[in-house]
Write a protein that binds this DNA or RNA. Structure first.
Length: 277
DNA sequence: ATCCGGAAAT
DNA sequence: ATTTCCGGAT
């Protein structure tokens, strides 16, 4: 398979220079800052994540500041972001980072809970300037459409070194993500204004999984449950059931999962609270 | 393959 | 009313 990347990169980087989204952490290579931003921005628009990032980096300027805090405090600050397990994993990770430091963990950041392939590569690229592609949903979409491949993951495995040759990975990765957000959008991509329109394969067959409805889902109840516990503190499980207006069986399952996630604790007297251990 | 929140955009 | 978001764990 022959692949031309030179024009793709040149046009992309040129576009980026004039159109990039400006954020404070983009010119930052402090690993804790990058880590916080990346965890907060998982499945979250940057415009919204940035506000939370500022709040968190101010409250927890260093890993030890979070490590010595509490889950309740962190969940309160997290409120509105969703996927509360991220906050719990971030809390646990901060303890590990405070003890071992990022340089001590390098390059295997996936040993931190909540850090997977994407976030590891984000740290490697944005902090350590390693030649890796931060393969988020934007990058996959662009690669698939432009190069006409059904499996962008395989493509990147094969051609990442070519893509990053003579190129600062931080710059290319951020260019890809902004381009995917602004021009090569999931719906109604701006092909008419796209500087890569001529050479693009325009492969739009990347199947997207439509997600379960939020209304009436376990996710909705989980979110509400956490919110109630943060507001009212330790609560009897029957009182909680009345507040949530959920049937027993469903609530039992939800609480069981929340316990498994380490977010709540249920004692023998049927009292439930945010996990403080 | 499925679960996991919630706000904003469309 | 539906889709989207700089994913990760099981």
């Amino acid at each position: 398979m022959e692949v031309k990347t030179k024009n793709f990169k040149n046009v992309l980087l040129k576009w980026y220079k004039r159109n990039k989204r400006e954020y404070s952490w983009r010119n930052d290579s402090d690993p804790w800052s990058i880590y916080l931003l990346e965890v907060i921005s998982q499945q979250t628009q940057l415009s919204r994540a940035d506000k939370y990032y500022k709040k968190f980096i101010k409250e927890f300027p260093a890993p030890k500041d979070m490590a010595t805090s509490s889950l309740k405090k962190i969940l309160e600050m997290w409120s509105g972001l969703g996927y509360n397990s991220r906050a719990k994993r971030m809390f646990e990770s901060s303890k590990i980072i405070a003890e071992k430091s990022f340089d001590g963990l390098y390059p295997d950041f996936q040993q931190l809970p909540g850090v997977g392939p994407y976030t590891e590569n984000a740290l490697l690229s944005f902090v350590y300037n390693e030649k890796v592609i931060t393969e988020d949903i934007n990058v996959k979409r662009i690669i698939s459409r432009y190069f006409g491949v059904k499996n962008p993951k395989k493509f990147i495995e094969r051609f990442s070194s070519l893509l990053l040759k003579n190129t600062e990975s931080r710059k290319l990765n951020q260019a890809l993500m902004d381009f995917g957000s602004i021009i090569c959008r999931p719906r109604n991509p701006l092909c008419l204004n796209c500087p890569l329109e001529n050479s693009c394969k325009k492969y739009f067959n990347l199947e997207t999984k439509s997600q379960e409805k939020f209304f009436g889902s376990n996710r909705e109840v989980r979110g509400k449950l956490i919110k109630i516990l943060l507001k009212k503190g330790r609560l009897n499980i029957n009182t909680l059931q009345q507040e949530l207006n959920t049937d027993q069986e469903k609530l039992d399952k939800i609480i069981k999962n929340l316990q498994k996630d380490g977010l709540v604790k249920l004692n023998k007297n049927n009292l439930i609270d945010i996990n403080s251990s």
